[in-house]
Design a protein around this nucleic acid. Sequence first.
DNA 1: TGTACATCAGTGAACGCGCGTTCACTGATGTAC
DNA 2: TGTACATCAGTGAACGCGCGTTCACTGATGTAC
Lengths: 194, 194
Amino acid sequence: MRYTSGHKEITRERILRAASEGFRKKGADGVAISDLMEELQLTHGGFYRHFKNKEQLFVEALKKAIGDGEHFLKSATENSPKGKELHGIIATYLSLEHCADVQHGCPVAALATEVARQPKAVRSAFDQAIAAFISLVAPYVPGKSIKERESKARILFSGMVGIISMARAISDVAAREELLKSSRDMYIQAFCSP
Amino acid sequence: MRYTSGHKEITRERILRAASEGFRKKGADGVAISDLMEELQLTHGGFYRHFKNKEQLFVEALKKAIGDGEHFLKSATENSPKGKELHGIIATYLSLEHCADVQHGCPVAALATEVARQPKAVRSAFDQAIAAFISLVAPYVPGKSIKERESKARILFSGMVGIISMARAISDVAAREELLKSSRDMYIQAFCSP
DNA sequence: TGTACATCAGTGAACGCGCGTTCACTGATGTAC
DNA sequence: TGTACATCAGTGAACGCGCGTTCACTGATGTAC
């Protein structure tokens, strides 16, 4: 072979990373394969040595983004002081930094309205993302039963997704920051007290 | 002229209505001008007698959808029993019917993540939609000052947008209905008590 | 009232571009002998 | 150890399609005279 062993897998990973950021930043229809490959100093023809087609790329890129999100969330809660985990999650999720950094942020907040129109394979991956978030967050949400904690976690997550996607759509900077700040306060108050 | 006076404006309105529903259902990139015109039994060439280009169509269609939303909201609150207006707004917005009927539903919930990537003209229209919703809803939100009511209305709206767009993205029907039901209860409880 | 011309909403062929996908080819390395 | 052949990640031209946009044309009605 022309390249060292493991080379192919490395290239595949590079494509996936670029795609997972590209899709979040530019949307499901906003990423052209030729641009994506060019970004990695490759030509578009080689893409099909790694993926069957663009849909497969989208699904795998979404899963990658979800995996990153889980990892981030896990390490964030582990590094939070005991009893302050949920507070930390909310403050981070609704931060100016997360809002400004679409390409590295939560894929659900970046792609929610578009995913609703995607084929089944994509939507199933999405279901997984939500389930993952819920099971990671639920333990820190106050509530009498697991069911209640999970239900609250779902509402919290959906709400925060809405805030971030709205904040990104708003063109007025001051209004955006005000929304983030006030919702952060309100969500912490609503979800972090027993 | 070949057509009766007022004919042109009627056609323009028909195009706008079809577009405003089409964009909500299929997304900003999902509506082809030729399909849109065919739906109205017209040919694609005539489109440019009515609109400069597709971007203008999108902006005007979005504004139309926003106008419809305001109208709907206004009549809904007027027909609610006194003191129950906010309860009615939340229950309607988070209903199964609204969730299932994207094309006639809230344009913000249908297009939020895509609008963030659109040009300024679109995003300004979006800002207006939010402002309109807020000023219509704020009077019914409990709070000490106008500022507090408006701030709460913004958080409520963003949260509901998130719930609906997530519910639509989720492929599992039972999970979707559970999310809508439980969030409806929680939002009513959180926002409708003084 | 009748005739000639202007208007303009709508038609449909054509253009150009972007983009997903295919395919014959390259050339460095691995393997068989 | 050396030679012949196979492999396959990556190349870049080419294909085909969808779609936004343009444009010469149509033909019924309005207007000027």
